[in-house]
């Protein structure tokens, strides 16, 4: 872990709020790239707007955002580029509408991936979270729509969740700007390496498949020793994903 000397007040909320500078569309001289991923209609664009001060369109229906949008913010002297992605239910399929998000998470090489989930529908959202965690080991779970979860009498034990997933969990209500300072702080700590994630890897895979994946991923590691997500690539190769095959051939993973 990186050893950084922290000033005492770096963790206090006032400092957090002041350390933030919304940069709007100015995305030059960037230190870190942060992707906003998640199921449709979980508030990704709302989080994006809260962080960058932009007015990316939001709307209460799945599929509002269809092209990726970029913005930036500065926090404690580091500049972050934030990329708002269209919502996806999964990274497993090859359907076209999910292409933008899939490609960016896989090939855009974000330094941190913020996964925005709907707190009242956690189980269904975890489907995507677990897939993303196969791909990257620098992620933050943004437990959004906490106000609605509260209204529906849903309680979430964030520490257990964070332990099980192996990544930091931040509850927010992006629409009311609640929890946003915390989110920024966590993003910057993951980006700088102050927080090290140990992401959960999918366990309930039938033996037949696990064996095949094991075999394939060993081969992949031989070819690309530095790759962090050989298991995911193995899954995709077994699926016959053309995009991945092409990426292997052109060496996009190297």
């Amino acid at each position: 872990m990186e050893n950084k000397v922290n000033s005492a007040c770096e963790t206090c909320p006032q400092f957090n709020a002041k350390g933030l500078k919304k940069l709007g569309v100015h995305t030059d001289n960037i230190d870190y790239v942060v992707a906003l991923a998640g199921n449709p209609n979980t508030g990704k664009s709302t989080v994006f707007n809260a962080l960058t001060g932009l007015r990316q369109h939001t709307g209460n229906w799945p599929g509002k955002t269809v092209v990726r949008a970029e913005g930036a913010f500065e926090y404690n002297d580091s500049k972050f580029k934030l990329v708002d992605l269209p919502g996806t239910y999964s990274l497993l399929s090859t359907s076209q509408d999910e292409e933008v998000a899939r490609d960016f998470i896989l090939f855009g090489k974000p330094n941190v991936t913020v996964i925005v989930v709907d707190a009242s529908r956690l189980e269904r959202n975890l489907n995507l979270v677990l897939q993303i965690l196969e791909i990257t080991d620098k992620a933050v779970l943004c437990l959004n729509l906490m106000d609605e979860a509260k209204r529906n009498n849903i309680k979430i034990d964030e520490r257990t969740l964070s332990r099980d997933l192996g990544i930091p969990v931040v509850p927010t209500s992006a629409r009311f700007n609640e929890g946003i300072p915390d989110l920024i702080q966590t993003i910057s700590e993951v980006a700088s390496g102050k927080i090290i994630c140990k992401p959960h890897r999918i366990k309930n895979v039938p033996k037949k498949i696990e064996d095949a994946v094991e075999k394939l991923s060993t081969e992949i590691k031989k070819q690309f020793p530095t790759i962090p997500n050989s298991r995911w690539i193995a899954f995709r190769l077994l699926e016959g994903d053309n995009r991945i095959i092409k990426a292997l051939k052109t060496g996009e993973f190297a």
Binding site: L122, L130, I154, I156, D164
Partner: peptide, 15 residues
């Protein structure tokens, strides 16, 4: 398989 994992995790932390 993925949904099975998801169920386990959410059962442990959601009430």
């Amino acid at each position: 398989g993925i949904y099975a994992d998801a169920s386990e995790i959410s059962n442990a932390s959601v009430s």
